[in-house]
């Protein structure tokens, strides 16, 4: 049994279940109340659950994210929305220095069972400060989980698992995926650290996550016309990372392209490439390619923005370079 729904509806369902099943769970974030959320994920929640469970917070990212952390330390199950990942910079001290550290620093006395939902991505013409993708940064922090779903099924399945974790999660949704549709199987639950092969193939492995999975699948379809059979691996979570699936695929195809939306230098894809060269060096028939954003802030002007972020065609070209 499965139902078709949007990415937005899938997340909405995950939140509803949390609120209905767990009296310790509450939502907190800017404009999530009567306004229904900047991306309309929490529409109707305020009316249904009221202000105790739906905390519409002032514009104070550091304060409300930190308060979420404190309440999790005190035993609640906060699900905090940071309107976009760009604004998480105002709360990054609370996330990195506090949420991610307090278990360790306290000699394991505290847990921070908290989900931070936030929105990543470029391509919406909202200029440099509103178009960034920091999930890779967060993936470099021990103590955090980083989840980056690309489909409604993955979003709900992963969200259900996140609720069972006793440590903080950055649950990163993509700004351009909310309206995308897909089948969601009943009762789906997906563990963290399990990548998904979104398309099987034999000639090359394209590795990506979030919105870039869509582009990778489009590229794979185009490559099919040229007789190239690409496998598309969706990482689904950056931390923990499913090394096994990546390596198995590369050992099969002998070629890899790693795709991510943000700037290349220092990007998460570099970590993936490093793992591939270490664990599958002897299987590679070509150097691993990377497709990523240009080394610039994202410009507002529409034609320039298109140049700054990777697209399907660039993935196709990168694959063709290898074959």
């Amino acid at each position: 049994m499965s139902t078709e729904m949007t990415y937005r509806q899938a997340i909405c369902q995950g939140l509803t279940e949390a609120l209905d099943e767990d009296p310790r769970a509450y939502l907190m974030g800017e404009d999530i109340g009567p306004y229904g959320g900047a991306f309309a994920v929490t529409q109707g929640f305020w009316e249904k659950y009221g202000p105790r469970r739906i905390k519409d917070s002032p514009l104070s990212e550091s304060a409300f994210v930190g308060a979420g952390i404190g309440s999790a330390m005190a035993g609640l199950r906060p699900i905090v929305e940071i309107m976009t990942i760009n604004f998480s910079l105002l709360a990054i001290d609370q996330i990195v220095n506090h949420a991610a550290k307090v278990r360790y620093m306290s000699g394991d006395q505290f847990s921070v069972p908290m989900i931070i939902r936030t929105v990543t991505g470029a391509g919406a013409s909202v200029a440099a400060t509103h178009s960034q993708s920091f999930e890779g940064w967060y993936a470099s922090v021990p103590g955090l989980y980083v989840v980056v779903p690309s489909t409604p099924e993955d979003a709900l399945g992963l969200f259900r698992s996140c609720r069972e974790l006793m440590d903080p999660v950055m649950f990163v949704e993509h700004i351009l995926l909310y309206g995308s549709r897909g089948q969601v199987s009943e009762g789906v639950k997906i563990p963290l650290g399990k990548a998904d092969i979104k398309k099987e193939g034999s000639d090359v492995t394209i590795i990506s996550y979030s919105k870039m999975v869509q582009n990778s699948l489009e590229a794979a379809a185009m490559l099919e016309n040229d007789g190239i059979n690409a496998e598309v691996v969706d990482l689904r979570t950056l931390r923990p990372l499913d090394v096994e699936t990546i390596i198995k695929s590369v050992k099969k195809t002998h070629r890899a392209v790693v795709v991510e939306e943000t700037t290349k230098f220092g990007g998460f894809a570099g970590e993936v490439v490093s793992i591939i060269q270490q664990e599958a060096f002897d299987y590679l028939d070509a150097p691993v390619e990377r497709v990523a954003g240009e080394e610039v802030p994202i410009p507002y002007s529409m034609p320039l923005e298109k140049l700054a972020i990777p697209d399907t065609q660039r993935i196709v070209s990168a694959v063709k370079k290898l074959i």
Partner: peptide, 24 residues
Amino acid sequence: GKGGSMHLIDADKGFMGGYAIVGG
């Protein structure tokens, strides 16, 4: 054209911007 509506800036006119992060 790089800043858009939220980032109008003209330093010569003493208009130092236009910043889109609230409080920034």
